[in-house]
Amino acid sequence: MKKTVTWILIADGTQARVLEHGGPGKGLSTIKDLDWSIDALQSKDIDTDGYGRGPTGAQ
């Protein structure tokens, strides 16, 4: 019988982690090299400083 492995991705705006499930009764384990984290962006880096451009041209 072929071994079934399931990967599970858990992520939000600043972190991501991949877990592996090796089958019934095996539980979850973290994939060591597939674990990311970045600094959270400040609201000033996310917000825009003005309104977007509207459609132009003749109608």
Rank of each mutant, 00 (worst) to 15 (best):
residue 30 T to P: 01
residue 26 K to N: 07
residue 4 T to A: 11
residue 56 T to V: 14
residue 23 G to E: 08
residue 27 G to K: 02
residue 48 T to V: 12
residue 19 L to R: 04
residue 40 A to W: 02
residue 7 W to G: 05
residue 2 K to Y: 07
residue 40 A to H: 07
residue 28 L to G: 04
residue 48 T to C: 05
residue 58 A to V: 11
residue 2 K to F: 06
residue 21 H to C: 06
residue 20 E to V: 11
residue 38 I to R: 15
residue 40 A to C: 02
residue 6 T to H: 14
residue 3 K to H: 14
residue 40 A to S: 13
residue 52 G to K: 09
residue 31 I to A: 07
residue 20 E to C: 09
residue 32 K to G: 03
residue 9 L to N: 08
residue 44 K to I: 00
residue 6 T to L: 13
residue 14 T to K: 08
residue 15 Q to N: 11
residue 51 Y to K: 12
residue 29 S to C: 07
residue 26 K to Q: 14
residue 32 K to C: 00
residue 4 T to D: 14
residue 47 D to T: 03
residue 50 G to L: 02
residue 45 D to M: 10
residue 5 V to F: 04
residue 59 Q to T: 05
residue 17 R to I: 02
residue 35 D to G: 00
residue 14 T to D: 14
residue 19 L to G: 01
residue 31 I to C: 06
residue 58 A to Y: 12
residue 58 A to D: 14
residue 15 Q to Y: 01
residue 34 L to W: 15
residue 48 T to R: 10
residue 33 D to S: 13
residue 43 S to F: 10
residue 23 G to N: 08
residue 39 D to I: 02
residue 39 D to A: 08
residue 46 I to A: 02
residue 35 D to E: 09
residue 38 I to S: 09
residue 23 G to F: 05
residue 32 K to M: 05
residue 47 D to N: 06
residue 25 G to Q: 09
residue 16 A to E: 03
residue 18 V to T: 09
residue 44 K to W: 13
residue 7 W to I: 09
residue 48 T to F: 10
residue 45 D to F: 06
residue 13 G to D: 12
residue 13 G to K: 07
residue 27 G to S: 04
residue 9 L to E: 12
residue 56 T to K: 15
residue 39 D to S: 08
residue 53 R to S: 15
residue 12 D to W: 01
residue 18 V to A: 05
residue 52 G to L: 13
residue 12 D to Q: 01
residue 39 D to Y: 01
residue 19 L to D: 03
residue 50 G to N: 14
residue 49 D to R: 11
residue 30 T to E: 12
residue 58 A to M: 09
residue 56 T to F: 06
